[in-house]
Design a protein around this nucleic acid. Structure first.
Lengths: 178, 178
DNA sequence: AAATAATATGCAATTAGTTGCATATTATTT
DNA sequence: AAATAATATGCAACTAATTGCATATTATTT
């Protein structure tokens, strides 16, 4: 179950609160992992109970207290073992493709509308990723070296979105030629 | 929950057994939906109970009996309503990207080996999809028209694999330049 | 000969993920 | 003023998916 490993990877970089991690998934690395805040808190608790994470509580004024988690040596050992293991490719379950597959039962307009809506979502997603890339490319060479591997994952996020958008254009052209 | 809708879409094409549907997901349309046979049987049972599917039992010699499911009129109505609804884009949870993101904790060789392994899996997957495309392209124009929309989904399967393989090459070149 | 695969279906325990709800305070928007 | 968002954490019910196991027979592979 790789949510735990995703959390360990992120925390191996720097300590963080559950909320910060939730935001990271929402805004930063959602192109390769997504999880609800409830799931994240649940797993952080479990990881703490087995000793792979520890936390300090920081009291705040005007806001709830923070629990800042950081990875333990045991957590690092587990993470390193996992990083040397084999993982399964992700499974694809894409409801839009199911819709297109069965699309002969509805009018092309219906499909076109939904594909346009998804196109808009993907375009926004791509823009976010390109903004992150712009930020990365503005770093000094030393800093770039530090984030080289995360940048490679971002490249996948970007290339995946771009290829999706190219395909969506192909589909729209085909549907509109009716 | 779109496994039910995936099953309705497939059965709107022609009646099938749970086993055949399971094979279809394994060999034909796994690029946009995957499900275990247990999950498929569970959902077929549910869909039958609510009247969206019905089945006939066919006795076989030397093999277990078959249950051939087909969509009902109620099922078609539900499917049509769903085909006109909005669906969410799929969520991506890719453990290989998590590994690459945290890859500074292991030697490049370790990452390279796992990426090569995934590359092999993806290449085989692409070859399967290209074989299906070859089959489609060998059809008569009339038959092609019949499968035009499923072919568009296949195009996504293919373009997704191709873009992944291009990206993987980029990553390997970067990792091997160390 | 034994193990595995294929054909076909299914039970059930376990794990993973989703959704709604909640607490409490401040800031911003409607 | 009321509603919503942001900051932060969390409980719990429900749904979805995974995994292991099972039945029974034949065919193929080791």
């Amino acid at each position: 179950m790789s949510l735990q490993h995703s959390l360990l990877v992120l925390l191996s970089e720097s300590p963080a609160t559950g909320y910060e991690l939730s935001q990271t998934f929402k805004k930063g690395v959602g192109y390769f992992w997504k999880a609800s805040h409830q799931q994240i808190y649940l797993q952080l608790k479990k990881l703490s109970e087995v000793g792979w994470l520890e936390f300090v509580i920081e009291v705040q004024r005007g806001k709830p207290d923070k629990k800042i988690y950081q990875i333990t040596e045991a957590g690092k050992a587990v993470l390193n073992a996992w990083l040397s293991s084999e993982v399964k490719p992700p499974k694809t379950n894409d409801a839009l493709l199911v819709m297109i597959y069965g699309g002969k039962h509805v009018k092309p307009d219906v499909l076109i509308k939904e594909i346009e809506r998804h196109k808009s979502i993907h375009s926004k997603g791509l823009k976010k990723l390109l903004d992150i890339e712009t930020l990365y490319l503005s770093l000094s060479d030393d800093e770039k070296k530090k984030y080289r591997l995360p940048y490679l994952t971002l490249r996948r996020g970007i290339s995946g979105e771009q290829s999706w958008l190219v395909w969506a254009e192909e589909v729209l052209i085909e549907l509109m030629s009716d």
